[in-house]
Amino acid sequence: MVQKRAGGIEVSFEFFPPKSEAMEASLWTAIQRLAPLGPRFVSVTYGAGGSTRERTHHTIQRLLGETDLDPAAHLTCVDASRAEVDEVIHQYRQTGVKHFVALRGDGQGGAGSAFVPRDDGYRNGADLTAGLKAIDPEFEISVSAYPEKHPESPDFATDIDLLKRKVDNGATRAITQFFFDNDVYERYVERVRRAGVYVPIVPGIVPIHDFVKIARFSEATGANVPAWLARRFEGLENDPQTRAHVAAAVCAEQVLDLTQRGVGEFHFYTMNRADLVYSICHILGLRPGPMAVEGNEGAAAA
């Protein structure tokens, strides 16, 4: 599906593979709601362990078979040899996937834990990007970027040097870790450009469905939660309706400010929920086009 976007704004959406039938129904409800907005692509996360990989692959196959969306498959370097990762890449390629999100991945203990590469595995996102391009030079590859520096990087210079290596190895886009201070993002883009990196640096946006969870995850990933943001959600722990309104307002302020700074593309971490994301996209000027999901009732009930 090709859809003209208001003001040149483009969006992409990230989902995670469901762990149960109920979660799968919720995921496909979100996909049905967001698909008519004509995202540039949708990505599906991928973690360590065979069951996670299988669920990701299943979700990608459904997206290819039941929608007009362009799915991007996440890949990580965690707990797998190069041969095992290459086999997964070939499987995706055979099903028609041409876009990947190449990530080193969190440590085996989850977000915030130390990553230990396997001797026979890919060592980081730059290494994985090179491996993808060796299999198919036509692959489109998105990689990660960190406006507040990756928590394991000793300094910004090291962090940006790794991003440059990813791009030199064939990455076509960088998607940032979520952030809440647009000045931080703008300074980061300036640093990246001075380092000779000119691919799009797409801001990753996370709507705050649950402030406590986001604050906890931010601490593990090195993303700063400003004091003013915490104050916005004070006293709303047992008031979901007001909390939703505040979350929409906060996210709307952020994306509108970014558009005023010249940003034209956004990547939304949906958490498999469409409500806040759809509202923000409406504010950005995106309107539904033809439905991009076939068999709506069947997809939701599957």
Rank of each mutant, 00 (worst) to 15 (best):
D120M: 15
D119Q: 12
R243H: 09
F211K: 05
A220W: 14
G264S: 05
A114V: 06
F268L: 07
K213E: 04
A171G: 06
E297R: 11
N124T: 01
V11L: 04
D106Y: 09
Y188F: 06
R104I: 00
Q94L: 02
G49R: 08
S153E: 08
A72H: 07
G96S: 09
E294R: 05
M23A: 07
V225F: 14
R194H: 15
T56F: 09
W228I: 04
P17F: 05
G289A: 08
F100D: 00
I201P: 03
P207C: 09
L258F: 06
F217S: 15
V189D: 04
T259A: 01
P36I: 13
V189P: 13
G298N: 15
H245F: 13
T270N: 06
I205K: 09
F139L: 03
A244T: 11
A244G: 14
Q3M: 13
A111P: 12
N224E: 10
V116F: 11
I175G: 02
N182W: 11
I89V: 10
D275Y: 02
F41V: 10
A102K: 05
A215V: 09
N272G: 13
R191L: 05
E237Y: 15
L276F: 01
Y198H: 14
V189H: 08
Y92H: 12
K166P: 01
H282Q: 09
H58W: 07
T158D: 09
H267R: 07
R82T: 02
L286M: 08
G131F: 01
Q91K: 07
P207R: 07
G105W: 04
A195Y: 03
A248M: 10
V277A: 13
A35S: 07
G65F: 07
T129I: 00
I280C: 08
D181Y: 03
E294H: 10
R40C: 15
A80T: 02
A248Y: 13
N238Y: 15
F178W: 07
P288L: 09
V199S: 03
S12D: 01
S113Q: 13
V116L: 12
R261I: 12
A126I: 00
L103C: 00
H150E: 02
E84I: 01
H99C: 01
R53Q: 14
P18N: 15
H150W: 04
Q254R: 11
V88W: 07
A171D: 00
T45P: 13
A299E: 10
R191S: 05
A48S: 14
R123P: 13
L229F: 11
I60N: 03
R173T: 09
G204C: 12
Q241S: 08
S81L: 08
Y198T: 15
D86M: 00
A25S: 12
V11D: 01
A102R: 08
V101E: 00
L132D: 00
A195F: 02
F156T: 15
F268A: 11
W228N: 14
M271D: 08
G49P: 14
T242W: 03
G170E: 01
E21S: 15
D155N: 14
P226C: 06
Q260S: 10
H58P: 10
K149I: 05
Y185C: 04
Y198V: 03
R165E: 06
G170K: 02
